[in-house]
Simulated scan of single mutants.
Amino acid sequence: MPRYEFRCRACGDTFEVNRSMAAAGEPASCPQGHADTVKLLSAVAVTGRSGGGAPAPAAGGGGCCGGACGC
């Protein structure tokens, strides 16, 4: 189930709520009991490499696309 981050405008607390995507836009109450909250935008960083691929070309490899396509 997706997790959404909220911030309370009254006390400044940041908290997370697990809810379905269909309920993503519904308001959430602060754990301190305040109702004036705002949903925050989350930045998701995906890192890692898939195995078995060729390494990325070194910077300055030349060509129109850094030398990766052999043009």
Rank of each mutant, 00 (worst) to 15 (best):
C64Y: 11
C8H: 01
G60W: 00
M1Q: 08
R19S: 14
R7V: 15
P27Q: 02
A68R: 15
G70T: 06
G52C: 01
A58Q: 13
N18E: 14
E26H: 13
G33P: 12
R49Q: 13
C30T: 01
T47K: 05
D13F: 00
E5Y: 15
T37S: 12
A54L: 13
A35Y: 10
G63Q: 04
P27N: 02
G48A: 02
E26M: 08
T37Q: 09
K39G: 03
S42K: 14
G48L: 04
F15G: 00
G51H: 11
G61Q: 14
V17H: 06
A28M: 00
G63A: 11
A35F: 07
S29G: 08
G12C: 04
G67D: 03
V44H: 14
T37P: 02
P57F: 01
A59W: 05
R19W: 03
A24K: 08
G25H: 14
P2F: 03
S29Q: 10
H34P: 06
A45F: 08
Y4D: 14
T14N: 10
A58D: 10
G51Y: 02
C65P: 00
Y4T: 08
N18Q: 12
G53W: 05
M1R: 14
G33M: 09
L40F: 10
R9S: 05
G33Q: 05
R9D: 07
D13E: 15
G52T: 00
G51W: 07
T47E: 11
